[in-house]
Nucleic acid binder design. Structure first.
Lengths: 167, 167
DNA sequence: GAGATATAGTTTCATTTGAAACTATATCTC
DNA sequence: GAGATATAGTTTCAAATGAAACTATATCTC
């Protein structure tokens, strides 16, 4: 990490909670998550982890739980529990993994695929409403920024003073 | 809410989880919160609610718990617990509210103010690191967008089909 | 091929969270 | 000013979360 000199300060020298990024981010994310969680729960009986799992199976086809976890940034415990709920409702099918006896191959069932087709437009509609006042370019920029933040936060967390330069 | 016609779609007609705003937002926010939470906990023994409480008392001076809650978008239970912890460590002082017997006036103690002066630069440094690769304008835009999202999410949550037009 | 070590997934447990019930005080209506 | 109703803050309880221990299977090393 390049040492010392404070480059262009992006933040005022004095802290203002209202303009503090981690705060703004957390508050916005909570508000959105809460809205979405309620919608999925009320309309489809799905938790957010379950929804993510369905979405990723619909997009990428059959996956192991491990793959789902890394693909969707969810803990293995979270994935395990989401899976159990979905299997119980027969929205997801589990087959043994042919080459690895510890693992399973998860796939959407017919019913799961049908449900996905119902949920996806609702999901898109919520997103559209949330973003309706913004320029498409601004939205694209926001998403890029979020991805970037995520990466940097992970880097800082990994080597918070330690490994940062060496690959 | 204006009816029907789908204006300019900000989102593709097909859902891609990776580009789905609520997902990106949640993942980014979790990554940042986790980083920050660990930092505050390790270095200062503060939880995020406690940190928010200190920050807002430092900025705005004495407040009731209720005021802190609405100012920082925290549940009254969260504020209550954060307060208890801080009072126990004598970082915050509680005085009866002169006009309202149910309420209290919370203020930073000397020690609390000192701690704030230690934490604030660390907080700013984390923010600066998270944002170091971005243009100041992009950062300002992001914060605006987050505020906006928060407001819209709250509106949608309040009247999710119900009251939306009538004031 | 027999340990040793790693990985997929589950279970257990302790912590966090927030809704709902509760207590105490204010305010409003008659 | 006596209920009725609202509000500040706490406590209680149930659900969500994720770290750590655990089980079962793979892989690696000799």
């Amino acid at each position: 990490m390049p040492s010392g000199e404070a480059a262009i300060p992006h933040s005022p020298a004095t802290l203002k909670l209202d303009g503090y990024l981690p705060y703004r981010l957390s508050v916005a994310s909570n508000a959105v998550s809460r809205l979405i969680a309620r919608a999925y729960e009320d309309r489809f009986g799905l938790t957010i982890p379950q929804w993510r799992l369905i979405a990723v199976l619909a997009e990428d086809g059959p996956l192991t739980q491990h793959a789902i976890g890394s693909r969707t940034v969810m803990d293995k415990v979270t994935v395990s529990r989401a899976t159990q709920g979905l299997v119980k409702r027969s929205l997801v099918q589990r087959a043994p993994h042919d080459v690895d006896g510890r693992s399973h191959r998860l796939a959407l069932s017919k019913a799961g695929a049908r449900l996905y087709k119902e949920v996806a437009p609702v999901a898109l509609e919520y997103e559209a409403r949330l973003l309706q006042e913004f320029e498409p370019a601004a939205v694209a920029g926001l998403k890029q920024l979020l991805l970037h933040l995520e990466r940097i936060a992970a880097e800082l967390a990994a080597g918070d003073g330690a490994a940062a330069s060496a690959p």
